[in-house]
Design a binder for these strands. Structure first.
Lengths: 136, 136
DNA sequence: CCGGATCCTATCTGATACTG
DNA sequence: CAGTATCAGATAGGATCCGG
């Protein structure tokens, strides 16, 4: 994919430090919310319909699924296709941009799953230290 | 670094699909919040003191910096070192676990910076379509 | 310098009910 | 089936004052 931006400025990643941090924030606010990443992960496996997604995520409310999908659509990460039939059939899929996000998301997802145990352990150590301090 | 979990279970990433999604969520809620990832990115460059971080992030309130650092510390991603001097000198650094997060975070960070323009463009197209529909 | 405590607001989320 | 609308509770976030 040939990524140039709208105004014609070349899009070259500067050092992650200094310059970039303020650009990363807004993206994180989308991708980093409660559901977006999960949806991207599921859609990475192929297009899904609304209720397929709902069933697959389990815990998400209809409202939040709609809202999150709208957000992802707005950001150009997900496409929404309506087949004008009865009953209506709406299919969601990753766009090219969304596909390009698969790799980073997978990287983070694998890290998360590989280290979730370490994290929980650290949390328990931390909480135990606090309890010990409060009730000696 | 040799990452095995506490209980001695081997930590092998299952397929990102099915099994993993519910494990990823909690991790995302930490790493995916408004500031954690930014802090990890900065700390990736080396240890920093409290106000160094505050100055570097610019936009974060004292409160949120404290809270976020506590959270990261609780998760075992960041270490907090107090030098008992006057004035006090508190240094934050990535732990080994935190270091292991550097790579995934950088991957996502680079993606974010490389595609921020595409995203903003998509948002404007989306919003424009809505305006056109509401005010013909 | 570091950060705890408090107050107050904006936003997010879920439950529920209703529509094409 | 795939939404929209509305309401109420939870949570995040900022501003400010205070203390070690």
């Amino acid at each position: 994919m040939h990524v140039t931006d709208v105004a014609g400025e070349s899009v070259q990643p500067p050092s992650l430090e200094s310059t970039g941090c303020r650009n990363v924030s807004p993206v994180l606010n989308r991708v980093g919310d409660k559901w977006s990443m999960l949806i991207v992960m599921i859609l990475a496996d192929g297009p899904r319909r609304f209720n397929e997604l709902k069933r697959h995520i389990d815990g998400i409310s209809q409202r939040m699924l709609t809202l999150t999908l709208r957000g992802l659509e707005r950001d150009g990460l997900v496409s929404r296709t309506v087949e004008p039939s009865v009953p209506p059939r709406v299919t969601y899929a990753l766009t090219d941009l969304g596909e390009s996000l698969k790799q980073p998301v997978e990287t983070l997802g694998r890290w998360a799953m590989a280290h979730i145990a370490c994290i929980r352990a650290a949390q328990q150590r931390f909480d135990a230290r606090l309890d010990g301090a409060n009730e000696p």
